[in-house]
């Protein structure tokens, strides 16, 4: 297996505010890495950093390196990065309602990707579009290609957005909460399609989600973010069986499951701290049931643990 995307202790700031610190991740070909955490933990920011899109929101990488297929993204020109996005990196946004142009027909919006990035003719691009829509199990692809976004359901639109991300035949797909706005039966369809793409094309998928159920179902590895830092990372099996970080354990415990006793679902007390008022020491300490004096003073470093790593002074105490 070869590493396609690698983040090495990446730090990100907007203005003088540090939002991400020491984020190290890697995604291999044929692998699905889940990136989880509550809102405000820095998931989407990590995705923007990986694509070199931070300037769009006024952010910048302050430390570390993002490497795509071995190349340092920071060393590339903007033109080189732009050629990469859409071609070798496909992006699926969270909200399919706003990701599509409301005044352009579906077909034209998908065609343009393969015309731009693969240099296909108009006819060849359309043939490819219809093929992609069929792969997405869209009924009557030719009719849908002539439709406008408002004529389609949310689940259909999300499949179109995925088709657009695939049109450039990317090696890496970054999907930012691709199913959050969708119904469960549609979510199951989308997750199945994404899993299939990775297996059949040998692509890599960085799947951003807040749903530990989705992670358990299709991811190979999972990275847990909390308040802009990496809390835990590793293969899915051991992490769900015995989460080393109390935050990972708490997140898994938030999902109602069959056979759970009434009253056992309590959530995580408090809320994710604001970037302007981060607690000292471990940022999870105000919400952690295992916090001790050292947790309030010193930030734990991210250290190897099992087949992954964890940043906790009491790693393993939770399980």
């Amino acid at each position: 297996m070869s590493t396609l995307l690698q983040l090495e202790s990446v730090g990100v700031s907007i203005g003088t505010v540090a939002l991400l610190e020491g984020i190290s991740l890697s995604v291999e070909r044929g692998q699905i890495l889940g990136l989880v955490g509550e809102s405000g933990s820095g998931k989407s920011l990590t995705a923007l950093a990986a694509m070199g899109l931070l300037p769009l929101i006024g952010g910048r990488i302050t430390t570390g390196q993002v490497r795509f297929d071995g190349q340092d993204m920071a060393a590339m020109t903007e033109a080189q990065r732009r050629a990469l996005r859409g071609r070798r990196i496909g992006f699926v946004t969270q909200n399919p309602m706003t990701a599509l142009d409301p005044v352009q027909r579906i077909g034209a919006q998908v065609d343009i990707v393969s015309r731009l990035h693969l240099g296909l003719s108009w006819q060849a691009a359309r043939a490819r579009t219809l093929d992609l829509l069929t792969q997405m199990r869209i009924p009557e692809p030719a009719a849908v290609a002539e439709a406008y976004p408002h004529q389609l359901s949310g689940g259909m639109k999300q499949r179109i957005v995925i088709a657009m991300a695939l049109a450039g035949d990317p090696d890496l797909i970054i999907a930012d909460e691709p199913t959050t706005a969708l119904d469960v039966t549609v979510q199951a369809q989308i997750i199945q399609i994404l899993g299939q793409i990775v297996r059949e094309r040998g692509a890599a998928l960085l799947l951003i989600t807040h749903d530990m159920g989705v992670v358990a179902q299709i991811c190979d590895r999972v990275a847990v973010l909390y308040a802009g830092r990496l809390a835990e990372e590793g293969p899915v099996g051991p992490i769900f069986a015995a989460p080393a970080h109390p935050y990972t354990r708490a997140l898994i415990g938030c999902i109602p499951q069959e056979g759970m006793a009434k009253g056992s679902l309590r959530g995580i007390p408090g809320a994710v701290p604001s970037a302007l008022a981060m607690p000292s020491g471990c940022r999870f300490n105000p919400r952690c049931p295992h916090a001790s004096a050292i947790c309030c003073e010193t930030a734990p470093s991210f250290a190897p643990f099992g087949a992954g790593g964890v940043a906790c002074h009491h790693a393993g105490v939770a399980s």
Binding site: V184, A188, G213, V214, A216
Partner: peptide, 19 residues
């Protein structure tokens, strides 16, 4: 269609067909 947070309970997803 609901996913259980347990990788050991992973199964083939059989989505509901149709719209």
């Amino acid at each position: 269609s609901g996913f259980v947070p347990d990788p050991a309970a992973r199964r083939a997803i059989v989505p509901v067909a149709g719209e």
